[in-house]
Amino acid sequence: MPEWKKPLPTISGETKVFWDGCKKGELIIQKCDTCNDYQFYPRGICSNCWTTDIKWVHSTGRGKVWTYTITYQNRTPGFAEDVPYVLALVELDEGVKMFTNIIECDPKEVKIGMDVEVTFVKANNFITIPYFKPVS
C-alpha cells in the first residue's frame, strides 16, 4: 500500500463507531431517540435537544451533491499533487450534509443535484475514508 500523504483523521472514543463502520464499508451516522433528528458529524450529545439518547444508524450511503468546487491550488501534502480535485458537500438521503471528495469521475462532470453514493478507500491498516462517486 503506498504511503498516505493526505491528513488523516484522529479517532476518538466519541467518533470510533463511525470510523469502525468505514473499515467495514458501512456509513454510520447518528439519530436522536428523543427528538428523532439526524446529525453529522457524530458527537456525544444530540446538538438539537441536548440529550444523550444517540443511536448509531446505517445511512443509505446515497445522496445528492449540495455544492462543490474544483480545487486547483492547495499546498497541503497529498492534495498538492492531487489537483484538480472536487471538494463537495453531499446531502445524504437522511438530510444531513457532509464534506467529501467526488471521485471516480471527471471533475468537470460533477453537477449540483447529481446522485452520488458512498465508496471507501483504505488509507492504511487502521483507517478507511468515505468518499462519494456518481451513482452508476
Partner: peptide, 9 residues
C-alpha cells in the same frame, strides 16, 4: 477529522 481529510481550503 471530518473536513480537512478532504482538502478544504
Amino acid at each position: 477529522s471530518f473536513e480537512e481529510i478532504y482538502g478544504l481550503t
